[in-house]
Design a protein around this nucleic acid. Structure first.
Length: 208
DNA sequence: ACATTAATTGTGT
DNA sequence: ACACAATTAATGT
């Protein structure tokens, strides 16, 4: 685990911190499509992403979900940290998009580190900031963009995260993640296909 | 190989 | 949004 930590965080964290992290944390590897935490579950710790990608969802009381953003290697889920203080129940759902590797840090240690290691405070702060920026971005998109633009963004982001042009996904799934309906997504995708932006197959979308 | 069923996608109203 | 048709994949016999 020290190896992975040094690789990704060697420049950010001091040696002593890396060792402390390695002492108290556990390395987890999860397959694709694995739910790491669901809404309402108690938060056990904060993840440091080593590899892969995780989708973060929000859900309303009716059970409608909405994809908020991804976290990727080098990221942490600082949102969790922000509200872990008061309520220790998760307000989000996290599902792996790819097979992923992550280090789970128990909550207890983290407060100590804030005092002890400036680099840790820094990391939290920076991570927090980028996360907020991302959230604002998706919020803007929700508020001001039409569904078509959101769909295009979604596809582009998915291609980037997966690193390939063939996206294995059903229209129904896209509809759920964007909080739309299947029919609407199908129609928009068809339109995009006619525009030559994508090619549609069953269970797969080819980005051009 | 064939029939049946379920899941996914396309289209009209 | 709803209903239905068409297509494709999965499963059993």
């Amino acid at each position: 685990m020290i190896l992975e930590l040094k690789q990704l965080f060697g420049n950010i964290f001091e040696e002593a911190l890396i060792h402390e992290i390695a002492m108290v944390s556990t390395l987890r590897e999860v397959p694709e499509d694995y739910m790491l935490i669901d809404i309402g579950e108690p938060i056990k710790g904060i993840p440091l992403m080593i590899g892969g990608a995780i989708k973060i969802y929000r859900e309303n009381p009716n059970g409608d979900e909405l994809l908020l953003h991804y976290i990727e290697e080098g990221d942490s889920c600082t949102l969790t940290y922000a509200w872990e203080m008061n309520a220790s129940k998760s307000k989000i759902r996290a599902i792996s998009e790819l097979p992923s590797k992550l280090i789970m840090i128990p909550l207890k240690q983290m407060e100590l580190w804030e005092e002890k290691f400036p680099s840790w405070r820094n990391f939290l702060f920076r991570s927090y900031q980028t996360r907020m920026d991302e959230l604002i971005e998706t919020l803007d998109s929700l508020a001001f963009d039409g569904l078509e633009k959101r769909l295009i963004n979604y596809l582009a982001e998915k291609r980037r995260v997966n690193g390939k042009n063939e996206l294995q996904i059903t229209h129904q799934n896209i509809a759920l993640e964007l909080h739309s309906s299947r029919v609407v997504i199908s129609r928009l995708l068809k339109k995009l296909e006619h525009l030559g932006k994508i090619k549609l197959k069953r269970n797969e979308i080819l980005m051009v």
